[in-house]
Simulated scan of single mutants.
Amino acid sequence: MSSTKTPIVLIHGLWMTPKSWETWAERYRALGHEVIVPGWPGIDDRDVADIREHPEALRGIGLQQIADHYERIIRALPEKPIIMGHSFGGVLTQILADRGLGVAYVGVAPGQPAGIRTLPLSTVRTGFPILSNPFARNGAKPISKGHFHFTFGNDLDRAASDAIWQDQAVNSYNRVFFEGVSSAVLGRGPSKVDFGRADRAPLLVIAGEIDHVVPPAIAKAIVKRYRSSGSSAVVEYREFAGRTHRLVSQDGWEEIADLALDWALEHAVPQQV
Rank of each mutant, 00 (worst) to 15 (best):
T4P: 03
P7H: 06
G13R: 02
G13I: 06
W21E: 06
E22L: 08
W24L: 14
W24I: 13
A25L: 05
E26C: 11
E26F: 04
R29I: 15
A30G: 11
L31E: 15
H33W: 08
D45P: 02
D47F: 03
A49K: 08
A49C: 08
I51N: 05
G62Y: 12
P78V: 02
P81T: 05
I83R: 03
M84H: 01
S87A: 10
V91T: 09
Q94S: 09
L96F: 05
L96G: 09
A97K: 01
G107H: 10
V108R: 01
A109F: 04
G115T: 12
I116F: 03
T118R: 02
L119H: 08
P120R: 12
T123G: 00
V124P: 00
G127V: 10
N133F: 12
P142N: 09
H147D: 15
D155R: 11
D155T: 08
N174F: 08
F177V: 13
F178E: 01
A184G: 11
G187R: 01
R188P: 02
R197P: 02
R200T: 10
L203K: 03
I210T: 14
H212K: 10
K220P: 03
V223Q: 00
R225F: 05
Y226N: 00
Y226R: 00
A233Q: 01
A233I: 00
F240Q: 02
L247F: 04
S249R: 13
S249N: 15
I256A: 07
D262R: 07
A264R: 02
E266S: 11
P270N: 12
V273W: 15
V273M: 13
